[in-house]
């Protein structure tokens, strides 16, 4: 029992402590509207983080995720401009953009042998440029109600939990699918093996390029979904995705994912995203301004890597 506790990922304990602290400072948090709102706000970052985990486990980074969120919001609003009947087509088109972006990222890494951090940095700048050019620098267009449904709508009058935001359902479904793909399929095992040692994976017969394409596509698709949610509850702005890729990487690292690949679980990454969000909530309650949140995010990113390294050395891994 003690052994199992020791082996348990500390991120879950940290999350618990943060919840307790928030609940003490703000009892509102214990109300269904309190914690459901919290989960709703955490949903985009959790989805992004799990998508990012695919790329991290493959041994890379996806810095283009945040810019793709912005492009999704801006693009959808321009294409739709309040036209509710086009919502489904636009969502499909955006998912198509996601698959394309992910595939291009992966092919630049696989075929042109550009390190992923550079390839996706280039993609990030390109996508930001496209979003700005398209919108002319200021938000244009208008997102219809049925598009904003996913990010904003609350299912009310439920027994026990009273309310359930649609964003939370989206988060649960997306994360469950991505958990299954990572931990319960041959694909997921290939992906982690590739991140651990690409040469060994190649010589064992793993199709590296194909595996990498799917990993980057998962990250990009998750960015599009996060964009749809953010467009729903935050509305249209040109900086909606700024810095989200770094939050996603931070969340994965808090969850114990190893940078450069080979080690990281979906469950712990979701917990990492919730820790990050809880941290922001706590600082908010304590009355700290936004810049302080950035400082804290930076510090916990570094601490998480240090702690993970220390635990690994102790366990002789």
């Amino acid at each position: 029992m003690m052994d199992r506790l020791k082996q348990m990922n500390p991120v879950f304990l940290v999350l618990l402590l943060l919840f307790v602290a928030i609940a003490i400072l703000s009892p509102y948090f214990l109300q269904p509207t309190g914690y459901m709102n919290f989960l709703k706000r955490a949903a985009p970052i959790a989805i992004l983080a799990v998508g990012q985990l695919y790329v991290i486990n493959s041994g890379g980074f996806d810095l283009s995720a945040g810019a793709l969120v912005t492009l999704t919001v801006i693009g959808s609003s321009i294409l739709l401009d309040g036209e509710a009947s086009a919502t489904w087509w636009v969502i499909l088109a955006m998912l198509g953009v996601g698959v394309t972006v992910g595939t291009v990222n992966a092919l630049v890494v696989s075929w042109l042998r550009v390190p992923s951090i550079i390839a996706t940095l280039g993609m990030m700048i390109t996508l930001s440029g496209i979003a700005l050019t398209w919108s002319g620098g200021a938000p244009r267009g208008y997102l219809p109600e049925n598009f904003r449904f996913f990010g904003r709508f609350l299912i009310k009058d439920l027994p026990l939990i009273k309310i359930l935001p649609v964003a939370v359902i989206v988060m649960i479904v997306v994360c469950a699918l991505l958990w299954w793909l990572m931990h319960r399929t041959n694909y997921g095992k290939r992906l982690i093996a590739m991140g651990d040692n690409p040469k060994a994976a190649l010589l064992a017969g793993v199709p590296l390029t194909q595996t990498r394409i799917v990993a980057f596509a998962m990250s990009s698709i998750s960015a599009v979904i996060a964009g749809i949610l953010l467009g729903g509850f935050a509305g249209v702005s040109t900086d909606v995705g700024v810095g989200l890729e770094l939050q996603a990487i931070t969340a994965a690292v808090i969850g114990g994912a190893q940078l450069l690949g080979g080690r990281g679980t979906v469950g712990a990454t979701i917990a990492g995203a919730l820790v990050l969000q809880a941290m922001f909530t706590l600082l908010n309650i304590l009355g700290f301004p936004k810049p302080v949140r950035d400082v804290v995010q930076g510090l916990i990113l570094i601490s998480a890597v240090v702690i993970a390294g220390y635990r690994r050395r102790r366990s002789g891994g």
Partner: peptide
Amino acid sequence: AFSRALGHP
């Protein structure tokens, strides 16, 4: 590596 990608590992 040689089984169906979505099959159980």
